[in-house]
Write a protein that binds this DNA or RNA. Structure first.
Lengths: 111, 111
DNA sequence: TTACATACATCGAAACTCGAGGTATGTAGC
DNA sequence: GCTACATACCTCGAGTTTCGATGTATGTAA
């Protein structure tokens, strides 16, 4: 039960930072959806469901934080590669600063 | 629009850490719901709606992470004061450790 | 030919959120 | 005595969000 509760708490963290984490990964260079999924699993410690990730990416594109481009490979299925726009980079930059403040505030609560 | 997006991002952070933040505040000593609301507003940078907070507190009680006790005051309305149980303290302790790991992982993404 | 990894996308049942509304006490100002 | 506001708790349900299931398609390996 303790594990159950902790699992829920961590799951919430993941959900909470998801769009931020996506921006941060994109901030390291263009990625396609599947690659992003792998990176996020690594960073967040759990897989992000596709039903969550792809709609989110569409949202980033719609809000002009990222642009997508289809990349055809010599081998394997086509990839849709996402890259941050200037706006996306600005938002990421500001979010990173705010994340620092947020973390410090929360940290004050902890011994 | 940039501000809109950032506001959404921060709102998500708040939501994501809410139960954790509540545990952390309770970890500093017993509080009643209203006092908790004030503390959270201070820590999280925005007010947590009562419709969110009170059900959450009931959940903590139901899951035996906290126990509640009614405190009648000489003046003013009665207060329901919450204190962590041993289980609650254990969960908080473990969550704090995991929060550190989580933060570091996420931090690796940031320049 | 079966299974699995890569790769994208949508749908809608189920779960969650929280604004609005309700109850009640006490204080301050008019 | 009336209004407004701060303290203090709680519930309901319309609206939003989530994500498991499902579908499509290519390439590789057993």
């Amino acid at each position: 039960m303790t594990n159950e509760t902790l699992a829920d708490i961590e799951k919430r963290w993941r959900k909470g930072v998801l769009p931020f984490a996506v921006l941060a990964v994109l901030g390291q260079g263009p990625v396609h959806g599947y690659g992003l999924a792998l990176a996020l699993r690594n960073v967040l410690g759990a897989a992000i469901p596709e039903g969550t990730l792809y709609p989110l990416l569409n949202g980033l594109e719609r809000d002009r934080l990222a642009v997508a481009e289809w990349a055809i490979q010599e081998s394997g299925p086509a990839r849709k590669t996402y890259a941050l726009t200037d706006t996306g980079r600005e938002v990421l930059q500001e979010a990173i600063e705010r994340w620092g403040t947020f973390g410090r505030k929360l940290g004050e609560l902890m011994p």
